[in-house]
Design a protein around this nucleic acid. Structure first.
Length: 466
DNA sequence: TCTGGGGTCCTAGGACCC
DNA sequence: TCTGGGGTCCTAGGACCC
């Protein structure tokens, strides 16, 4: 029965999905490249005061060092380990070698990270997809991985779905190969903890635990309606299916980028607003550089602020058209910080751009050349930028610079016949705000107009005698 | 001085439009 | 004029993954 579970999910009848996972990847690359580290505990990750472990070699895992553990704790558990901050060039290179091996097996390869990928064997040249055939292929693949990477090892799992292939690759790690024979999936899953299911992390595990659900077998006995009630619609239906090993997610080779961001955690909490603005400005430049490098631009600019007590805030604003300009991203990022109370100290700051388009409206921005590659810059000396006629029909928050009674400002918002201008002052990136009629004929000498704001309505209420 | 960095997806509420 | 529903977009926060 498919009671209340929506559309049928067709699971493959053959173990044609392969999952490959390079063992203790970052640490293994370090041990490969530096023989003195072989056989010794190696920890790769953040080495600063607030760093965390990215990868621990198996020698370090003996001491209880784990991924995502703070480096501080890892040092306490295994003081004699080598603590390294990582050489991502080397990791990327080794990863590329392995990925190209996988693509030689099948064109349909989905990398999950530098050290992990799914391969769809239905698109391979194999004569059939019987267990013996795919097992032989996987064994040969593992041998080739070690050969081309000069000694790295991989764990491989094979199954009828992504879920099962991934579970399989964990079973005989490191340096192992496991094939889950089609038809035996539920038998394998039932005794396992619910956290084996993708998407079930600490929070969901705890919710399920409180409902008396610990194993996949117990999860299977819960109705779809009950699961939706417990964890929400999307996750509830997903759980109902995955508990039955019903997983028809396809292997997807190319994924579109949805957002680009840069963030940093600082060893000591930040309290100086000017410093924070400077850091956001630098991060905005890095984000812009990456957008440009990939030919992307985006409409939504966000900042992320983690306070001293680890509460995390985000603020965002959306432009009417996409940008990849560092000055625009920086200006908006700084102004988003203005509302936030950071007096207790800030441990993390970040800038991101989402709502990406893979093209830029060149014609629309042609005039930005006057102000340099980053678009109009309020700090730049020289003549006022000439305002093009397009400003009369469409205003672009964050991008358009205008001239009005407080000097130069930039468009903060527009709508209902009004354009809001934010003036940048020496004190603040987001200085005073004034609104102007959108059809004002003279752009540079606009007369201030009463903003259509909330404060106007309250005064009317108190003034009425009733 | 517990708790990285770069992502993805989901939820919920409000605005706005039809 | 009142009421409601659905769809879409936006914002903020949270969970999760590697």
């Amino acid at each position: 029965m498919w009671a209340g579970a929506g559309t049928v999910r067709r699971v493959r009848t053959q173990a044609s999905i392969l999952h490959l996972d390079l063992d203790a990847f970052f640490a293994a690359v370090e041990q490969r490249d530096k023989p003195s580290l072989r056989g010794k505990p190696v920890v790769v990750g953040g080495t600063g005061g607030r760093g965390v472990v990215a990868t621990a070699s198996y020698e370090a895992r003996i001491y209880g060092v784990r991924s995502a553990m703070s480096t501080r704790e890892a040092r306490a558990r295994c003081p004699h380990a080598a603590f390294l901050s990582g050489r991502f060039h080397a990791y990327r290179e080794a990863s590329a070698q392995v990925m190209s091996l996988l693509r030689a097996v099948s064109p349909l390869v989905e990398p999950l990270s530098l050290d992990e990928a799914f391969v769809d064997l239905e698109r391979s040249d194999l004569p059939d997809l019987e267990v013996e055939t795919v097992t032989a292929l996987a064994a040969e693949l593992r041998r080739r991985v070690t050969e081309v990477t000069d000694g790295l090892t991989a764990s491989v799992g094979l199954g009828t779905s992504k879920f099962i292939a991934k579970v399989a690759s964990e079973i005989d790690k490191p340096d192992g190969l496991t094939v889950v024979v089609p038809g035996t999936e539920q038998e394998l899953l039932r005794p396992m903890h619910v956290s084996v299911i993708p998407g079930v992390g600490p929070a969901t595990s705890e919710r399920l635990r409180r409902a008396g659900i610990h194993t996949v077998a117990e999860l299977e006995s819960v109705s779809a309606d009950e699961l939706v009630r417990l964890v929400g619609k999307a996750q509830g239906t997903s759980l109902w299916h995955l508990a039955r090993a019903l997983d028809d997610r396809p292997v997807v080779a190319e994924r579109e980028t949805k957002s680009v961001s840069v963030e940093g955690t600082y060893d000591t909490d930040l309290t100086d607003r000017t410093l924070m603005e400077g850091l956001l400005t630098r991060q905005a430049s890095e984000v812009a550089a990456r957008l440009i490098k990939h030919g992307l631009s985006g409409r939504t600019i966000s900042i992320k602020v983690r306070l001293h007590d680890f509460t995390t805030l985000s603020r965002s604003t959306t432009l009417t058209s996409p940008t990849d300009a560092a000055s625009v991203i920086a200006r908006l990022a700084r102004s988003l910080l203005v509302d936030l109370d950071t007096s207790g100290g800030v441990r993390l700051l970040g800038v991101g751009v989402s709502g990406l388009a893979d093209w830029i409206q060149d014609d629309l921005f042609a005039d930005a050349e006057d102000a340099g590659p980053d678009g109009p810059d309020l700090a730049a000396p020289g003549p006022e930028p000439e305002l093009p006629t397009r400003h009369r029909s469409g205003w672009s928050p964050g991008m358009d610079v205008v001239h009005a009674e407080l000097g130069r400002g930039w468009v903060w918002g527009s709508g209902r016949g009004v354009v809001t201008v934010r003036f940048e002052t020496a004190d603040s990136p987001a200085g005073p705000v004034r609104s102007y009629a959108v059809d004002d004929p003279d752009l540079s000498v606009w007369e201030p107009q009463e903003p259509a704001s909330e404060s106007a309505t309250t005064s009317g209420t108190t003034g009425s005698p009733g």
